[in-house]
Amino acid sequence: MLAGYLALLVAIAAGVITAIFALFNATWASLVLIFILLASFGLFLLRPKTTAQLQQDAWINRKLHPGLWQMVDEVAQVAETRSPDEIRLGPEMRATLSEQGGFRSLVVGLPLLGGLSTSELRAVTGHELAHFETVSPLEARLPRVVLFPYRLITKSQSRARAEHAEEVAVAAAGEEVAKAALMKLPALASVWHDFRLSSARVSYQYRTPDLVQRFNAFLSTPQGTEALAKAGVAEWAEHGGPAWELLSEPDKSLPYLQRQLFEELGVARDEKTV
């Protein structure tokens, strides 16, 4: 399918250039071709950098944190895909899976460990693993300028992929938990953004390394309930303990990992205060 799509793009480009050559001359055709090449190259250079390019994530050792690794391995089996070669904790409220040169890396947002329960994290991880598995390696490496029209053409397949990812999430954690987790994510991301900004504004003595724990506690307060409601979550159901319980000795390991990601708790460049 991908090879056919690329062939279609080449054929369209060739047709346009041929038409210009027929209507005008070779000079105009050459100029159009140069313009297309320069525009494509410029868009490729200006494409948004990935999370892995923008910051250093905290690496999770399999021997030190077997609980988190075991959960990911189990969910990978449910998704009928291979486990990642590494797990890292990132600073954002999301989970992402990438692959380069056959090396697969799963980045689990550290805020997820405070915003979700262990079972809800299973659902989110399963959703990500299943969604990635349905994408071909070539498609995963396509530049955005090519990927966008490709996905428009294969919209029906994308819908099937999304449905498959939801099915895996349900199989990994149960229907109620999976629906709750996937529904919460956008709201959690919004509330976490504001919570982190407010933490970054206070004096240094309050910038303690228990940021994720305090966020978890905040969600159960009246202020947290109000913030979630504004973000679109009317009811907040609990499905077990916080996901950080998957870490070994979380009281010790969680502050250490938080220091690696939020050492100064400063406001990010794209999160400037008004």
Rank of each mutant, 00 (worst) to 15 (best):
I12L: 15
A14V: 09
A19W: 13
N25I: 13
A26I: 14
G42Q: 08
L54Y: 04
A58H: 06
N61T: 04
R62S: 06
K63P: 02
P66V: 05
D73Y: 04
E74C: 00
V78C: 07
R82K: 14
R88Q: 12
G90V: 06
P91V: 02
S98A: 15
G109N: 03
L112E: 00
L116M: 09
S119G: 05
E120Q: 04
R122H: 06
A123D: 03
V124Y: 07
T125V: 12
L129F: 07
P137M: 01
L138Q: 11
L138T: 08
L142K: 07
V146Q: 01
L147C: 05
R151Y: 10
Q157S: 13
R161D: 09
A162H: 09
E163L: 13
V168S: 02
V170F: 07
A172Y: 01
E175V: 03
A178T: 00
A181P: 00
A189W: 08
S203I: 12
S203M: 12
Q205W: 13
V212C: 05
R214N: 01
F215G: 10
A217P: 03
W236T: 09
W236N: 13
G241V: 14
L247C: 02
P250D: 05
K252V: 09
L257M: 11
R259T: 10
Q260D: 06
E263L: 15
E263D: 14
E264V: 12
